[in-house]
Design a protein around this nucleic acid. Structure first.
Lengths: 246, 246
DNA sequence: CGATAAGTTGATTCGCATCAACTATTGTGG
DNA sequence: CCACAATAGTTGATGCGAATCAACTTATCG
Protein backbone atom coordinates (compact mmCIF):
# COMPACT_ATOMS: atom_id res chain seq x y z
CA UNK A 1 0.00 0.00 0.00
CA UNK A 2 2.73 2.37 -1.00
CA UNK A 3 1.77 5.58 -2.69
CA UNK A 4 3.57 8.69 -3.77
CA UNK A 5 1.17 11.39 -2.70
CA UNK A 6 3.74 13.52 -0.96
CA UNK A 7 1.81 16.76 -1.19
CA UNK A 8 1.18 16.99 2.54
CA UNK A 9 4.79 16.23 3.35
CA UNK A 10 6.02 18.95 1.01
CA UNK A 11 3.42 21.35 2.31
CA UNK A 12 4.39 20.83 5.91
CA UNK A 13 8.08 21.18 5.22
CA UNK A 14 7.63 24.30 3.13
CA UNK A 15 5.87 25.82 6.12
CA UNK A 16 9.27 25.59 7.79
CA UNK A 17 11.56 26.63 5.00
CA UNK A 18 11.48 27.47 1.33
CA UNK A 19 12.18 24.36 -0.70
CA UNK A 20 14.04 24.44 -3.98
CA UNK A 21 12.60 22.77 -7.08
CA UNK A 22 15.01 19.90 -6.86
CA UNK A 23 14.47 19.45 -3.14
CA UNK A 24 10.72 19.30 -3.66
CA UNK A 25 11.19 16.81 -6.45
CA UNK A 26 13.41 14.66 -4.33
CA UNK A 27 10.83 14.71 -1.56
CA UNK A 28 8.13 13.80 -4.04
CA UNK A 29 10.20 10.79 -4.96
CA UNK A 30 10.05 9.34 -1.47
CA UNK A 31 8.01 6.22 -0.96
CA UNK A 32 5.24 7.00 1.49
CA UNK A 33 3.20 4.30 3.06
CA UNK A 34 -0.23 5.02 4.49
CA UNK A 35 -1.18 3.39 7.71
CA UNK A 36 -4.56 3.69 9.42
CA UNK A 37 -5.13 3.27 13.11
CA UNK A 38 -8.25 2.96 15.19
CA UNK A 39 -8.62 4.80 18.48
CA UNK A 40 -6.19 3.61 21.09
CA UNK A 41 -4.06 1.62 18.68
CA UNK A 42 -0.30 1.85 18.97
CA UNK A 43 1.20 3.62 15.99
CA UNK A 44 4.80 3.39 17.10
CA UNK A 45 5.92 1.20 19.96
CA UNK A 46 8.40 2.74 22.36
CA UNK A 47 11.34 1.08 23.99
CA UNK A 48 13.58 -1.41 22.32
CA UNK A 49 11.88 -1.89 18.98
CA UNK A 50 14.14 -0.32 16.38
CA UNK A 51 11.62 1.05 13.94
CA UNK A 52 12.58 1.23 10.28
CA UNK A 53 10.41 4.23 9.53
CA UNK A 54 9.40 7.64 10.76
CA UNK A 55 5.81 8.82 10.47
CA UNK A 56 3.78 11.97 10.23
CA UNK A 57 0.09 12.45 10.84
CA UNK A 58 -2.18 12.80 7.82
CA UNK A 59 -5.51 12.96 9.62
CA UNK A 60 -6.71 12.57 13.18
CA UNK A 61 -4.64 12.92 16.31
CA UNK A 62 -1.74 10.99 17.77
CA UNK A 63 -0.37 11.13 21.33
CA UNK A 64 3.06 10.50 22.72
CA UNK A 65 2.76 8.57 25.92
CA UNK A 66 5.59 7.73 28.25
CA UNK A 67 5.31 5.61 31.34
CA UNK A 68 7.23 6.73 34.40
CA UNK A 69 8.92 4.46 36.90
CA UNK A 70 5.95 4.96 39.18
CA UNK A 71 3.72 3.45 36.52
CA UNK A 72 1.86 6.65 35.65
CA UNK A 73 1.32 7.49 32.02
CA UNK A 74 2.27 10.96 30.89
CA UNK A 75 1.29 12.50 27.57
CA UNK A 76 4.29 14.52 26.47
CA UNK A 77 3.00 15.62 23.07
CA UNK A 78 -0.10 15.73 20.92
CA UNK A 79 0.15 15.57 17.15
CA UNK A 80 -2.20 17.03 14.58
CA UNK A 81 -2.07 16.56 10.80
CA UNK A 82 1.30 17.62 9.44
CA UNK A 83 3.24 16.72 12.59
CA UNK A 84 5.93 14.09 12.69
CA UNK A 85 5.35 11.75 15.59
CA UNK A 86 8.80 10.19 15.90
CA UNK A 87 11.21 12.11 13.73
CA UNK A 88 13.77 12.11 16.51
CA UNK A 89 13.80 8.33 16.15
CA UNK A 90 15.81 8.89 12.97
CA UNK A 91 18.76 10.11 14.99
CA UNK A 92 18.28 8.60 18.43
CA UNK A 93 18.63 4.89 18.93
CA UNK A 94 15.43 4.23 20.77
CA UNK A 95 12.29 6.13 21.56
CA UNK A 96 11.55 7.12 25.12
CA UNK A 97 7.82 6.86 24.50
CA UNK A 98 5.19 5.19 22.37
CA UNK A 99 2.74 6.85 20.00
CA UNK A 100 -0.91 5.94 19.82
CA UNK A 101 -3.98 7.04 17.95
CA UNK A 102 -6.42 9.36 19.71
CA UNK A 103 -9.50 8.73 17.65
CA UNK A 104 -9.10 7.38 14.13
CA UNK A 105 -5.70 8.43 12.84
CA UNK A 106 -3.90 8.03 9.54
CA UNK A 107 -0.16 8.44 9.28
CA UNK A 108 2.30 8.16 6.44
CA UNK A 109 5.55 6.34 7.00
CA UNK A 110 8.90 7.06 5.41
CA UNK A 111 11.75 4.59 5.43
CA UNK A 112 14.56 5.90 7.57
CA UNK A 113 17.13 4.71 5.07
CA UNK A 114 15.41 6.60 2.27
CA UNK A 115 15.35 9.74 4.33
CA UNK A 116 18.98 9.36 5.32
CA UNK A 117 19.91 8.86 1.69
CA UNK A 118 17.98 12.00 0.83
CA UNK A 119 19.94 13.93 3.43
CA UNK A 120 23.22 12.80 1.93
CA UNK A 121 22.17 14.15 -1.44
CA UNK A 122 20.46 17.29 -0.14
CA UNK A 123 22.17 18.15 3.14
CA UNK A 124 20.16 21.31 3.51
CA UNK A 125 16.99 19.22 3.80
CA UNK A 126 18.37 17.64 6.94
CA UNK A 127 18.27 21.08 8.45
CA UNK A 128 14.60 21.48 7.61
CA UNK A 129 13.80 18.24 9.38
CA UNK A 130 16.05 19.23 12.24
CA UNK A 131 14.09 22.42 12.56
CA UNK A 132 10.91 20.40 12.74
CA UNK A 133 12.19 18.60 15.82
CA UNK A 134 13.34 21.87 17.38
CA UNK A 135 9.89 23.37 17.19
CA UNK A 136 8.54 20.40 19.08
CA UNK A 137 11.17 21.14 21.66
CA UNK A 138 9.88 24.68 21.95
CA UNK A 139 6.44 23.28 22.62
CA UNK A 140 7.93 21.15 25.37
CA UNK A 141 9.43 24.27 26.89
CA UNK A 142 6.14 26.10 26.69
CA UNK A 143 4.50 23.21 28.51
CA UNK A 144 7.24 23.25 31.12
CA UNK A 145 6.69 26.96 31.67
CA UNK A 146 2.94 26.47 31.83
CA UNK A 147 3.34 23.67 34.32
CA UNK A 148 5.59 25.75 36.54
CA UNK A 149 3.47 28.90 36.57
CA UNK A 150 -0.18 28.21 35.72
CA UNK A 151 -3.04 26.73 37.68
CA UNK A 152 -5.42 24.10 36.40
CA UNK A 153 -7.89 26.33 34.58
CA UNK A 154 -5.10 28.48 33.16
CA UNK A 155 -3.15 25.51 31.93
CA UNK A 156 -6.17 24.10 30.18
CA UNK A 157 -6.82 27.50 28.66
CA UNK A 158 -3.24 27.62 27.46
CA UNK A 159 -3.50 24.19 25.93
CA UNK A 160 -6.75 24.98 24.16
CA UNK A 161 -5.15 28.12 22.73
CA UNK A 162 -2.25 26.05 21.47
CA UNK A 163 -4.53 23.53 19.82
CA UNK A 164 -6.56 26.34 18.31
CA UNK A 165 -3.45 27.91 16.81
CA UNK A 166 -2.13 24.63 15.47
CA UNK A 167 -5.45 23.65 13.94
CA UNK A 168 -5.88 27.12 12.49
CA UNK A 169 -2.50 26.80 10.78
CA UNK A 170 -3.66 23.72 8.92
CA UNK A 171 -7.07 25.07 8.06
CA UNK A 172 -9.05 22.90 10.45
CA UNK A 173 -10.70 25.70 12.41
CA UNK A 174 -14.20 26.35 11.10
CA UNK A 175 -15.76 29.48 12.48
CA UNK A 176 -14.44 29.27 15.99
CA UNK A 177 -14.46 25.53 16.42
CA UNK A 178 -12.00 22.77 15.83
CA UNK A 179 -11.89 19.01 16.34
CA UNK A 180 -11.04 17.80 19.83
CA UNK A 181 -10.24 14.10 19.84
CA UNK A 182 -9.15 14.30 23.47
CA UNK A 183 -11.69 13.78 26.20
CA UNK A 184 -11.72 15.25 29.66
CA UNK A 185 -10.46 12.05 31.17
CA UNK A 186 -7.28 12.45 29.10
CA UNK A 187 -6.45 15.75 30.73
CA UNK A 188 -5.09 14.04 33.81
CA UNK A 189 -2.22 12.34 31.99
CA UNK A 190 -1.62 15.57 30.08
CA UNK A 191 -1.39 17.85 33.07
CA UNK A 192 -1.14 15.62 36.06
CA UNK A 193 -4.55 16.71 37.29
CA UNK A 194 -7.22 14.49 38.74
CA UNK A 195 -10.29 13.90 36.61
CA UNK A 196 -12.52 15.62 39.10
CA UNK A 197 -10.43 18.72 39.28
CA UNK A 198 -9.83 18.94 35.54
CA UNK A 199 -13.57 18.75 35.11
CA UNK A 200 -14.17 21.61 37.50
CA UNK A 201 -11.56 23.67 35.69
CA UNK A 202 -13.21 23.02 32.34
CA UNK A 203 -16.56 23.98 33.76
CA UNK A 204 -15.10 27.22 34.96
CA UNK A 205 -13.89 28.01 31.45
CA UNK A 206 -17.40 27.31 30.20
CA UNK A 207 -18.99 29.40 32.92
CA UNK A 208 -16.73 32.30 32.02
CA UNK A 209 -17.99 32.07 28.47
CA UNK A 210 -14.56 31.30 27.07
CA UNK A 211 -15.35 28.06 25.29
CA UNK A 212 -17.85 25.33 24.59
CA UNK A 213 -16.63 21.79 24.63
CA UNK A 214 -18.94 19.07 23.48
CA UNK A 215 -17.82 15.58 22.66
CA UNK A 216 -15.31 15.82 19.85
CA UNK A 217 -15.40 19.56 19.26
CA UNK A 218 -14.25 22.72 20.99
CA UNK A 219 -15.74 26.08 20.12
CA UNK A 220 -13.74 29.03 21.38
CA UNK A 221 -16.25 31.74 22.16
CA UNK A 222 -13.76 34.25 23.55
CA UNK A 223 -10.30 33.72 22.12
CA UNK A 224 -8.87 36.88 23.61
CA UNK A 225 -10.16 36.02 27.05
CA UNK A 226 -8.85 32.49 26.77
CA UNK A 227 -5.43 33.75 25.78
CA UNK A 228 -5.36 36.21 28.61
CA UNK A 229 -6.31 33.59 31.14
CA UNK A 230 -3.82 31.04 29.79
CA UNK A 231 -1.03 33.61 29.35
CA UNK A 232 -0.76 32.36 25.82
CA UNK A 233 1.73 33.86 23.40
CA UNK A 234 1.63 31.70 20.29
CA UNK A 235 4.91 32.81 18.80
CA UNK A 236 6.66 29.76 20.13
CA UNK A 237 4.80 27.65 17.60
CA UNK A 238 6.56 29.40 14.72
CA UNK A 239 3.50 29.34 12.53
CA UNK A 240 4.22 32.69 10.94
CA UNK A 241 6.30 33.34 7.82
CA UNK A 242 9.66 31.62 7.66
CA UNK A 243 12.95 32.42 6.04
CA UNK A 244 15.32 30.26 4.09
CA UNK A 245 18.30 28.82 5.92
CA UNK A 246 21.78 28.36 4.51
CA UNK B 1 40.86 35.84 22.24
CA UNK B 2 40.40 33.07 19.76
CA UNK B 3 42.03 29.77 20.42
CA UNK B 4 41.94 26.38 18.85
CA UNK B 5 41.76 24.11 21.84
CA UNK B 6 38.89 22.04 20.58
CA UNK B 7 39.59 19.02 22.73
CA UNK B 8 36.46 19.45 24.83
CA UNK B 9 34.27 19.94 21.79
CA UNK B 10 35.60 16.78 20.16
CA UNK B 11 35.29 14.89 23.41
CA UNK B 12 31.68 15.87 23.92
CA UNK B 13 30.70 15.04 20.38
CA UNK B 14 32.45 11.71 20.42
CA UNK B 15 30.36 10.85 23.45
CA UNK B 16 27.42 10.99 21.05
CA UNK B 17 28.86 9.30 17.99
CA UNK B 18 32.10 7.90 16.73
CA UNK B 19 33.96 10.56 14.78
CA UNK B 20 36.13 9.77 11.80
CA UNK B 21 39.70 11.08 11.56
CA UNK B 22 38.77 13.70 9.03
CA UNK B 23 35.71 14.78 10.96
CA UNK B 24 37.77 15.22 14.10
CA UNK B 25 40.35 17.17 12.15
CA UNK B 26 37.72 19.40 10.67
CA UNK B 27 36.32 20.05 14.13
CA UNK B 28 39.78 20.82 15.41
CA UNK B 29 40.04 23.44 12.71
CA UNK B 30 37.11 25.43 14.02
CA UNK B 31 37.83 28.79 15.58
CA UNK B 32 36.71 28.69 19.16
CA UNK B 33 36.41 31.79 21.21
CA UNK B 34 36.52 31.67 24.99
CA UNK B 35 34.19 33.86 26.89
CA UNK B 36 34.04 34.17 30.66
CA UNK B 37 31.01 35.24 32.61
CA UNK B 38 30.48 36.18 36.22
CA UNK B 39 27.51 34.93 38.19
CA UNK B 40 24.25 36.29 36.86
CA UNK B 41 25.70 37.63 33.64
CA UNK B 42 23.82 37.07 30.43
CA UNK B 43 25.68 34.70 28.14
CA UNK B 44 23.18 34.74 25.31
CA UNK B 45 20.34 37.22 25.10
CA UNK B 46 16.98 35.85 24.10
CA UNK B 47 14.43 37.43 21.83
CA UNK B 48 15.20 39.29 18.67
CA UNK B 49 18.98 39.46 18.84
CA UNK B 50 20.27 37.29 16.02
CA UNK B 51 23.39 35.85 17.52
CA UNK B 52 26.27 35.00 15.23
CA UNK B 53 27.53 32.16 17.34
CA UNK B 54 26.52 29.09 19.29
CA UNK B 55 28.17 28.26 22.59
CA UNK B 56 28.94 25.34 24.82
CA UNK B 57 29.92 25.32 28.46
CA UNK B 58 33.55 24.73 29.33
CA UNK B 59 33.31 25.18 33.08
CA UNK B 60 30.68 26.25 35.52
CA UNK B 61 26.94 26.20 35.01
CA UNK B 62 24.59 28.05 32.68
CA UNK B 63 20.81 28.33 32.93
CA UNK B 64 18.16 28.82 30.29
CA UNK B 65 15.60 31.26 31.55
CA UNK B 66 12.39 32.17 29.82
CA UNK B 67 9.96 34.77 30.98
CA UNK B 68 6.27 33.98 30.68
CA UNK B 69 3.54 36.44 29.79
CA UNK B 70 2.68 36.61 33.48
CA UNK B 71 6.18 37.89 34.18
CA UNK B 72 7.42 34.81 35.99
CA UNK B 73 10.83 33.45 35.15
CA UNK B 74 11.10 29.75 34.39
CA UNK B 75 14.34 27.82 34.17
CA UNK B 76 13.85 25.34 31.35
CA UNK B 77 17.33 23.87 31.31
CA UNK B 78 20.58 23.71 33.23
CA UNK B 79 23.87 23.24 31.46
CA UNK B 80 27.03 21.65 32.75
CA UNK B 81 30.43 21.50 31.04
CA UNK B 82 30.11 19.90 27.62
CA UNK B 83 26.54 21.09 27.01
CA UNK B 84 25.60 23.42 24.21
CA UNK B 85 23.47 26.22 25.56
CA UNK B 86 21.89 27.46 22.32
CA UNK B 87 22.62 25.00 19.57
CA UNK B 88 19.00 25.18 18.39
CA UNK B 89 19.72 28.83 17.60
CA UNK B 90 21.69 27.58 14.62
CA UNK B 91 18.50 26.40 12.97
CA UNK B 92 15.75 28.47 14.54
CA UNK B 93 15.54 32.16 13.84
CA UNK B 94 15.30 33.43 17.39
CA UNK B 95 15.72 32.00 20.82
CA UNK B 96 12.73 31.67 23.10
CA UNK B 97 14.90 32.21 26.16
CA UNK B 98 18.11 33.76 27.39
CA UNK B 99 21.10 32.01 28.89
CA UNK B 100 22.92 33.23 31.96
CA UNK B 101 25.77 32.17 34.14
CA UNK B 102 25.01 30.42 37.40
CA UNK B 103 28.22 31.02 39.25
CA UNK B 104 31.33 31.76 37.25
CA UNK B 105 30.97 30.18 33.84
CA UNK B 106 33.20 29.86 30.83
CA UNK B 107 31.83 29.03 27.41
CA UNK B 108 33.37 28.61 24.00
CA UNK B 109 31.67 30.18 21.02
CA UNK B 110 31.61 28.88 17.48
CA UNK B 111 30.65 31.03 14.54
CA UNK B 112 27.39 29.79 13.08
CA UNK B 113 28.67 30.30 9.56
CA UNK B 114 31.72 28.18 10.27
CA UNK B 115 29.57 25.44 11.68
CA UNK B 116 27.19 25.60 8.73
CA UNK B 117 30.11 25.41 6.34
CA UNK B 118 31.39 22.40 8.24
CA UNK B 119 28.04 20.70 7.84
CA UNK B 120 28.10 21.25 4.10
CA UNK B 121 31.43 19.50 3.88
CA UNK B 122 30.68 16.80 6.46
CA UNK B 123 26.91 16.31 6.38
CA UNK B 124 27.10 13.47 8.83
CA UNK B 125 28.40 15.86 11.47
CA UNK B 126 25.15 17.78 11.27
CA UNK B 127 23.50 14.64 12.51
CA UNK B 128 25.76 14.47 15.54
CA UNK B 129 24.84 18.03 16.46
CA UNK B 130 21.19 17.29 15.75
CA UNK B 131 21.42 14.39 18.16
CA UNK B 132 22.80 16.72 20.76
CA UNK B 133 19.66 18.85 20.58
CA UNK B 134 17.45 15.77 20.70
CA UNK B 135 18.93 14.61 23.96
CA UNK B 136 18.10 17.97 25.45
CA UNK B 137 14.58 17.39 24.28
CA UNK B 138 14.51 14.10 26.12
CA UNK B 139 15.51 15.92 29.26
CA UNK B 140 12.61 18.30 28.71
CA UNK B 141 10.28 15.32 28.46
CA UNK B 142 11.69 13.82 31.63
CA UNK B 143 11.04 17.13 33.40
CA UNK B 144 7.52 17.23 31.99
CA UNK B 145 6.89 13.74 33.28
CA UNK B 146 8.39 14.61 36.66
CA UNK B 147 6.24 17.73 36.87
CA UNK B 148 3.10 15.79 36.08
CA UNK B 149 3.64 12.94 38.51
CA UNK B 150 6.01 13.86 41.32
CA UNK B 151 5.62 15.93 44.44
CA UNK B 152 8.05 18.55 45.64
CA UNK B 153 10.52 16.33 47.49
CA UNK B 154 10.37 13.69 44.76
CA UNK B 155 10.98 16.22 42.01
CA UNK B 156 13.97 17.63 43.80
CA UNK B 157 15.27 14.10 44.32
CA UNK B 158 14.81 13.43 40.62
CA UNK B 159 16.65 16.58 39.69
CA UNK B 160 19.53 15.84 42.02
CA UNK B 161 19.81 12.38 40.50
CA UNK B 162 19.93 13.90 37.05
CA UNK B 163 22.65 16.34 38.01
CA UNK B 164 24.57 13.56 39.69
CA UNK B 165 24.44 11.46 36.53
CA UNK B 166 25.43 14.31 34.28
CA UNK B 167 28.32 15.38 36.49
CA UNK B 168 29.43 11.78 36.83
CA UNK B 169 29.57 11.49 33.05
CA UNK B 170 32.06 14.33 32.84
CA UNK B 171 34.13 13.20 35.78
CA UNK B 172 33.06 15.90 38.19
CA UNK B 173 31.71 13.64 40.91
CA UNK B 174 34.30 13.16 43.64
CA UNK B 175 33.40 10.47 46.08
CA UNK B 176 29.71 11.09 46.31
CA UNK B 177 29.71 14.85 45.89
CA UNK B 178 29.50 17.20 42.99
CA UNK B 179 29.36 20.98 42.49
CA UNK B 180 25.99 22.63 42.97
CA UNK B 181 26.04 26.19 41.66
CA UNK B 182 22.28 26.45 42.19
CA UNK B 183 20.95 27.69 45.48
CA UNK B 184 17.71 26.79 47.15
CA UNK B 185 16.16 30.04 46.14
CA UNK B 186 16.61 29.00 42.50
CA UNK B 187 14.46 25.93 42.94
CA UNK B 188 11.29 27.95 42.70
CA UNK B 189 11.87 29.03 39.10
CA UNK B 190 13.01 25.51 38.30
CA UNK B 191 9.99 23.72 39.67
CA UNK B 192 7.41 26.37 40.30
CA UNK B 193 7.65 25.84 44.04
CA UNK B 194 7.76 28.55 46.67
CA UNK B 195 11.02 29.09 48.48
CA UNK B 196 9.56 28.05 51.79
CA UNK B 197 8.17 24.81 50.47
CA UNK B 198 11.26 23.94 48.44
CA UNK B 199 13.27 24.43 51.60
CA UNK B 200 11.07 22.07 53.58
CA UNK B 201 11.35 19.49 50.83
CA UNK B 202 15.14 19.75 50.84
CA UNK B 203 15.19 19.38 54.59
CA UNK B 204 13.15 16.25 54.28
CA UNK B 205 15.72 14.78 51.90
CA UNK B 206 18.39 15.62 54.42
CA UNK B 207 16.41 14.17 57.28
CA UNK B 208 15.96 10.94 55.37
CA UNK B 209 19.70 10.71 55.02
CA UNK B 210 19.59 10.89 51.23
CA UNK B 211 21.86 13.87 50.70
CA UNK B 212 23.83 16.69 52.23
CA UNK B 213 23.63 20.06 50.58
CA UNK B 214 25.93 22.77 51.74
CA UNK B 215 26.58 25.95 49.85
CA UNK B 216 27.99 25.01 46.47
CA UNK B 217 28.18 21.25 46.93
CA UNK B 218 25.82 18.31 47.11
CA UNK B 219 26.87 15.03 48.63
CA UNK B 220 24.60 12.13 47.82
CA UNK B 221 24.68 9.86 50.83
CA UNK B 222 22.11 7.35 49.57
CA UNK B 223 21.99 7.30 45.79
CA UNK B 224 19.71 4.29 45.62
CA UNK B 225 17.25 5.82 48.03
CA UNK B 226 17.32 9.11 46.18
CA UNK B 227 16.63 7.36 42.89
CA UNK B 228 13.80 5.39 44.39
CA UNK B 229 12.20 8.48 45.85
CA UNK B 230 12.61 10.50 42.65
CA UNK B 231 11.57 7.61 40.39
CA UNK B 232 14.75 8.25 38.50
CA UNK B 233 15.70 6.15 35.51
CA UNK B 234 18.75 7.78 33.98
CA UNK B 235 18.58 6.09 30.60
CA UNK B 236 16.95 9.14 29.08
CA UNK B 237 20.25 10.98 29.40
CA UNK B 238 21.93 8.63 26.90
CA UNK B 239 25.19 8.64 28.77
CA UNK B 240 25.94 5.01 28.00
CA UNK B 241 27.83 3.68 24.96
CA UNK B 242 26.72 5.00 21.60
CA UNK B 243 26.71 3.64 18.11
CA UNK B 244 27.71 5.21 14.85
CA UNK B 245 24.95 6.62 12.67
CA UNK B 246 24.77 6.56 8.88
C1' DC C 1 31.57 44.35 61.79
C1' DG C 2 27.62 45.93 59.80
C1' DA C 3 24.87 45.09 55.59
C1' DT C 4 22.73 42.16 52.53
C1' DA C 5 21.14 37.94 50.90
C1' DA C 6 20.18 32.90 51.81
C1' DG C 7 18.15 29.77 54.57
C1' DT C 8 14.72 28.44 58.17
C1' DT C 9 10.41 28.27 60.78
C1' DG C 10 5.49 29.06 61.80
C1' DA C 11 0.57 30.27 60.84
C1' DT C 12 -2.87 30.54 57.61
C1' DT C 13 -5.20 29.91 53.20
C1' DC C 14 -6.11 27.73 48.94
C1' DG C 15 -5.62 24.51 45.11
C1' DC C 16 -5.92 20.02 44.09
C1' DA C 17 -6.06 14.83 45.21
C1' DT C 18 -8.82 11.44 46.77
C1' DC C 19 -12.82 8.77 47.51
C1' DA C 20 -17.41 8.15 46.60
C1' DA C 21 -21.70 8.58 44.74
C1' DC C 22 -24.41 9.78 41.01
C1' DT C 23 -25.99 11.31 36.11
C1' DA C 24 -25.54 11.52 31.28
C1' DT C 25 -23.85 9.64 27.26
C1' DT C 26 -22.33 6.26 24.12
C1' DG C 27 -22.17 1.86 22.42
C1' DT C 28 -23.87 -2.91 22.03
C1' DG C 29 -26.47 -7.10 21.51
C1' DG C 30 -30.92 -9.17 21.75
C1' DC D 1 -35.21 -0.35 18.18
C1' DC D 2 -34.97 -0.80 22.88
C1' DA D 3 -32.58 -2.36 27.20
C1' DC D 4 -28.75 -2.66 29.27
C1' DA D 5 -23.76 -2.21 30.05
C1' DA D 6 -19.93 0.46 29.96
C1' DT D 7 -17.79 4.66 29.95
C1' DA D 8 -17.54 9.79 30.35
C1' DG D 9 -18.86 13.49 32.83
C1' DT D 10 -20.53 15.75 37.16
C1' DT D 11 -21.02 16.78 42.05
C1' DG D 12 -19.91 16.67 47.04
C1' DA D 13 -17.08 15.91 51.27
C1' DT D 14 -12.67 15.60 53.22
C1' DG D 15 -7.57 15.81 53.75
C1' DC D 16 -3.15 16.91 52.20
C1' DG D 17 0.38 19.49 49.55
C1' DA D 18 1.91 23.72 48.54
C1' DA D 19 1.30 29.06 48.25
C1' DT D 20 1.58 32.96 50.86
C1' DC D 21 2.94 36.19 54.31
C1' DA D 22 5.78 37.22 57.95
C1' DA D 23 9.27 36.83 61.23
C1' DC D 24 13.57 35.27 62.28
C1' DT D 25 18.34 33.08 61.97
C1' DT D 26 22.36 32.06 59.68
C1' DA D 27 25.76 32.77 56.08
C1' DT D 28 28.50 35.89 52.94
C1' DC D 29 30.76 39.76 51.67
C1' DG D 30 32.50 44.39 51.44
Amino acid sequence: MSNTDSRLLILLLSRRDTLSESEAEALAGLNLCNSDHAHGETIVAGGDADAETVSFVVSGMALRAQVTLSGAEVISAVHVPGDFVDLHGLVLERLDHSVRAQGACRVQRIEKRELSALFREYPRLARVFWKQTLIETKIHRAWLAAGATLRANERIAHFVCELHARYAAIGLVRGNSFPMPLEQKDLDSLFGLSRAHANRAVQELRARGLLEWTRGTIAVTDLEGLRRLGKFDGRYLELGPRRRAD
